[in-house]
Design a protein around this nucleic acid. Sequence first.
DNA 1: CGTTTGGTTGAAATGTGTCAAACTTTGTGG
DNA 2: CCACAAAGTTTGACACATTTCAACCAAACG
Lengths: 261, 261
Amino acid sequence: MLPLAASGSAALADASSADDHPVVRYLDSVYPLSAEGKRALAEMPMQLATLKPDEPIVREGDRPTRCCALLEGFACSFKITGEGKRQIIAYHLPGDVPDVQSLHLTVLDNSVATLTAARVGFIQHEAMRELCRRHPEMTDAFWRATLIAGSIFREWVTNVGGRDAYGRLAHLLCEALVRMRAVGLAEDHACKLPLTQGEIADACGITTVHVNRTLQELRGDGLIELKGNTLVALDWHGLKRAGDFDPTYLHLREEMKGAAD
Amino acid sequence: MLPLAASGSAALADASSADDHPVVRYLDSVYPLSAEGKRALAEMPMQLATLKPDEPIVREGDRPTRCCALLEGFACSFKITGEGKRQIIAYHLPGDVPDVQSLHLTVLDNSVATLTAARVGFIQHEAMRELCRRHPEMTDAFWRATLIAGSIFREWVTNVGGRDAYGRLAHLLCEALVRMRAVGLAEDHACKLPLTQGEIADACGITTVHVNRTLQELRGDGLIELKGNTLVALDWHGLKRAGDFDPTYLHLREEMKGAAD
DNA sequence: CGTTTGGTTGAAATGTGTCAAACTTTGTGG
DNA sequence: CCACAAAGTTTGACACATTTCAACCAAACG
């Protein structure tokens, strides 16, 4: 793991290849980039920040002048309902830019916070626009990334609206595994799951207590092993079946489809 | 109501002003268009079709070569879960293009069907791309419309995941009223609600029976009147409170914010 | 080592689902 | 225009999934 350096303002591109840049790696997996595109992206000036777990990044109602790229660690988008319940609406992996839409929608309609210790890079909207102007492929790449995020929202509506607790959890775990694999953070059918049961609960729209009981069911059925933040799908096909999981909605590129097997 | 003409292939722009075109009207409400932009949009060649209620338009898994513009009537996007449940993930009003994302994502991840009798226009992807090339403002307008749709998905995740049946229904009705008003299909706090209780149920992730009972609660609390497809918010502020409704997520333009009062 | 955070358990309360029937409205064809 | 069929709404009794609350346990941590 990279050391979590102190805050500062710098481009992330040093001697190392642009492919080491998490945003480059993710975006390239979504929409193949040219060498120049990658370099330009990696050389974007951004203000680096190191964050602790559970730290806010941006808040609902903000009118940001910059985007936030997640470089290392995990984060989530969420809303707080009137009764004070937190609904997690998306998980973010390294390379994600959770608030790209702030380029076009002035006021943020959800908050973003870290789940784990994280390193983020803030990129001025103007720099972003300049990049897209100079390298039209970047526009397409961000477009596609945004559309995929939208597709995931649709699937989440289906998940919380249409499946019971058992199915929701199974589906969530399937998605976690596939997305982790797609960015190289999982091997075979095991990965880190940097979530407490409470955070899983807030994403699935059920209680912590019920998450706990339902996870035990999944374990009892021999589908998963989950202890100390490590998730293993003992029976991948069974888990997919339980979660009614069809990875189409992730719109993986042909070469990455293997991540879903 | 316009007569539902037989299918055919034609531009919709005749002698009448471009502003009569539903897509022009909606897109302009999202992102103000120039006169030329409006004209170009209204003159887009499209294949017209007249559809009955509950007719499929496109299906999950399709790889469309054209987009579908809803010209008249109402439609919805949905997915079918493994247990055969239908989860409605979005309602579409006249002027919507429910599957714009098919321009960038080859395979559709949800189905679209009519709710009422409807008139739709199919537009070849190539024509769409040509339009955006010639009139960059159209790219921005469709972008913004897509982002707003994404924002609505986020709110729906919150709605089905974070609120009980009473709140979900209240929220849904608030959204319906505001969106209807924004496109001129509602006056004051009344509008047509072209949905059966079953269709409301499929959107909220609850049962038809429970929708029925909960609607009675809303009526009993003096919040709404709802009979024969006509919805009236008797107590708009009470309904907003009940649904924990904050219209920020609809990203209405300043001039349209009145639709939410 | 004590303190905190997250996980686990049990019993009772409750919201929502299920099933089956009756009722009402809408639409249609004779 | 009526009569009938079809579709949508309403009701009741009961089953069940999920919540609530409270307590206890285990692991992580300074």
